[in-house]
Design a protein around this nucleic acid. Structure first.
Lengths: 146, 146
DNA sequence: ATTTAATCTAAAGCCAGGTTTATGTGCTGA
DNA sequence: TCAGCACATAAACCTGGCTTTAGATTAAAT
């Protein structure tokens, strides 16, 4: 069993953050002795899961729900799977969005490289997509859709 | 020239958001007539850029800096390029991070599919990575590194 | 035994990116 | 003329995920 300070060192998380997670209900059945939190293996495993889910962009509330399901045993496997399938969708969509953003940024990089070469934006401002080199035209189209 | 309400309709942005952007300095030289904002082509083009930069995850402060550079003409092309190159790095790193998160989530999906089949986590809890099917082992390793 | 360090709680504060509210001005149509 | 609408400002409020502060206890070290 560990104190909050020891866990803070192990996970490189501020003590205040651990207390905050506890307050938000992320450690449903943590023990205490004389009011002092005692972190056991169960809490350590939960913290590992919390780190995962946070990286995946999941909100604290939903992490809490997940933790509750975990302490309810095998009857909640299907719900837990559904939660991860949903999260998978979310992250995949986010990655697709980011790829489009990246093309937009690549186009802007090309644009300013040209502007630097030309010394002005005159030529660039009357760009006709059809006249662009193919790989730039693709960026341009990704950048200007929707 | 357009009023704030017209622009709000064009861009599907609340009036309050447009006023907020203005307050944050995103329209450096917007005209007014009798106190009322007049949005011109310049402001419309800026809004298009703002939408791009926001999607790219750029903070309002940095968008403001960019807007100021824009109104300073060709002498700032290099700075603008540098800003986009930096942003490109940021987004590329973010995408790489998300890909790792995705593998972690895929591993969790596999995990709960197995748990549902098995009816318990007994077998899963003593997983030895070496015994996993190769494609799952890869996910596992991505999920448990760092 | 005493001091220092670690822990506790509740409540307030912080940040970004807005949104809402309260209050006021000015045009427009019935 | 007057109701209603679009516009204006300043300031308060909101959300999420913490962090900080203030004041009280407990544990550890000397």
């Amino acid at each position: 069993m560990y104190t909050i300070g020891q866990i803070s060192n192990m996970f490189h998380l501020p003590v205040s953050t651990l207390r905050y997670y506890d307050k938000e209900g992320l450690f449903p059945d943590m023990e205490r002795s004389a009011g002092i939190r005692r972190f056991g293996e169960k809490e350590i495993e939960k913290l590992r899961v919390i780190e995962c889910l946070k990286k995946a962009g999941m909100e604290i509330k939903n992490i809490k729900v997940f933790m509750e399901w975990c302490s309810q045993g095998s009857s909640t496997y299907a719900q837990r799977l559904a939660l991860f399938l949903q999260q998978k969708e979310n992250v995949e969509n986010e990655i697709r969005r980011m790829e489009k953003v990246l093309d937009m940024i690549r186009f802007k990089c090309w644009y300013y490289e040209q502007a630097i070469q030309d010394g002005n934006e005159d030529r660039l401002q009357e760009l006709i997509p059809e006249h662009l080199p193919e790989e730039i035209r693709e960026l341009y189209e990704h950048a200007h859709q929707d």
